[in-house]
């Protein structure tokens, strides 16, 4: 690979990683739900950029198709929820105010849990990452195409069985979802 291409890949990698981080942070901390979904969608686009950087661009198209359906439905759902924001049509008074003490306790508990989790992951992976750091880049690159993936898929029969089982499970869920409507 030429040095210009390598530089482009490095720049794309930085753009993807930092864009992903910023859009993830915004999608968590924004309060307006439609903007939240917009930044979540941007984070998926940056994941797509990273798929290309790691030579797995085929994932962007295959997985992206399913994601689009999910996002459309989620956006419709949020749009309908937004209509009822701040309205009380049921007549039930619910106190939505959270005291500062409760809020501080929630943040502290969440931060402590995350800190503990991060500490254990760091402790148990730092040695491995130190060894893996030496795994250098080689000149040869494998860019996976759909035909390679299809070839592998049909060479391993177990995978097809898993996919069939998963399809049956999902169709069961689907029929539960569309069949359980309240009268």
């Amino acid at each position: 690979m030429s040095s210009t291409s390598q530089l482009t890949m490095v720049i794309l990698n930085y753009i993807g990683i930092f864009g992903l981080l910023i859009s993830c942070l915004l999608s968590i901390f924004l309060t307006y739900k439609r903007k939240k979904l917009l930044f979540l969608f941007l984070s998926f686009l940056f994941t797509g950029v990273l798929n290309f950087v790691y030579y797995s661009g085929v994932l962007f198209f295959v997985v992206g198709l399913v994601m689009m359906f999910f996002f459309l439905l989620l956006y419709l759902f949020v749009f309908q929820l937004e209509v009822f924001r701040g309205q009380e049509t049921t007549g039930i008074k619910v106190n939505l105010k959270v005291s500062n003490k409760d809020k501080a306790l929630d943040i502290t508990t969440a931060l402590l849990f995350c800190a503990g989790f991060a500490y254990f992951i760091y402790i148990y992976t730092s040695d491995f990452l130190r060894i893996a750091k030496t795994a250098g880049d080689s000149a040869e690159i494998l860019i996976a195409s759909w035909s390679d993936i299809g070839g592998q898929l049909f060479a391993e029969y177990g995978l097809i069985l898993i996919i069939v089982a998963v399809s049956l499970f999902l169709s069961f869920l689907w029929f539960v979802a569309i069949g359980g409507k309240k009268k």
């Binding site: 999910f70 439905l73 999902l170 539960v176 979802a177």
Partner: peptide, 14 residues
Amino acid sequence: YLVMFCLIYYLYLN
């Protein structure tokens, strides 16, 4: 994603 799609669809319908 299909499981989450079913979940949202279930909430949406029911």
